[in-house]
Design a protein around this nucleic acid. Sequence first.
DNA 1: CCACCTATCTAGACAGTGTCTAGATACTAG
DNA 2: CTAGTATCTAGACACTGTCTAGATAGGTGG
Lengths: 203, 203
Amino acid sequence: MSNNVKKSNYHHGDLREQLLKAATKMIRENGIDQLSLRKLAGLVGVSRTAPYHHFKDKNELLCAIAEQGFRERSKTMESQVGDANTDSSAQLKEYMVEYVSFAQQNPEIYELMFGRTIWKQQIDNKSLKDSAYPSFQHQLAVTKKWQEIGLLDQQANSLRLSQVIWGTMHGIAKLLIDGIYKDSSQIEEICECAASQFSQVTN
Amino acid sequence: MSNNVKKSNYHHGDLREQLLKAATKMIRENGIDQLSLRKLAGLVGVSRTAPYHHFKDKNELLCAIAEQGFRERSKTMESQVGDANTDSSAQLKEYMVEYVSFAQQNPEIYELMFGRTIWKQQIDNKSLKDSAYPSFQHQLAVTKKWQEIGLLDQQANSLRLSQVIWGTMHGIAKLLIDGIYKDSSQIEEICECAASQFSQVTN
DNA sequence: CCACCTATCTAGACAGTGTCTAGATACTAG
DNA sequence: CTAGTATCTAGACACTGTCTAGATAGGTGG
């Protein structure tokens, strides 16, 4: 295998990438459990068993899609520098709104990234874990920063507080995208309420 | 059909009840997506198609199990009168611990009750909705009560605050039972931290 | 008491699914 | 050019949910 081109034109070309792309599209449009490896193969134009030369099984495909999601999300988060013009209390709310909105706009990918499908079985997928780690780490770092400037409770253990805040956002997101909170126009109001509970500065 | 006995001994007896019972057991032990109507039928000792005379399809079976869960949960909640000996701040924590522990001890049933499996598709199942309603209503009532006694933020809109607190508990519960928060011994600490964020009384 | 009706149950079939095996193909390195 | 290996295909197996048609048996009206 040449070292400059990872996968030169070979038989089909870069089947792995095309499978990932098509699968992501299918999941976005029809949901995770509507994804079938056979339909996927048919769509891409290869035999039913071809995907098995690029992914051990269906689960590994799903993990790869989640991984992709984590990497994109990390990039988004890094570029999210707090706007110095808005006061920190509003930043907290915006932070939550952004999180929940991401989930709402990418419900199936979000479920894949943070849902039971992948995490329930104790996975031995270093690549996935590595890609997911920054998301968790970022949440903790932001919490610490906001504790330092007095926006968040300085008495609280940072890890615990980080887990609670993430839990809150995750819970609201899941209740929304799973269809229990029906009216998604409430995101702003709910996050406003949530942020004001955690905020230590009187607004 | 006689009016005193809903379903007298008939062919098999009360197949519907036995199906529900066995299905619940299977779900508890092997998870929702391991439940197969055919295996279930085999276990109960009837043909594969027999269950279809009691449930329109698999989804209706799952709804019935969730419904059962909601009814049991309602009973538990009603009997949960706050212990007058503990201060109200501790009550809030206990409330959250109890909720998350319920989820942790009944992860698959919890997923069924509050997860995407059932709610994602917009259901037209009045019976299920009716059984679920008290849980939602109870959460709101408790929030209002605690606002009145000054434990929770009196400025906040009760419905929104109720949604946020439920979101927090739901989020923590899901992160735990879906395997993202690995160490379930942290429940106490996380809930303690969460409760102290919402509590207005200095502990 | 008997015939009928209808609730209940069964067997068979169909179209899906994930994944294993064996074999064909085509590129690549020696 | 040959051998090896990555890639792809076809076939098969054991599952799945659910539809159809037919059997059975309990309750009910005459």
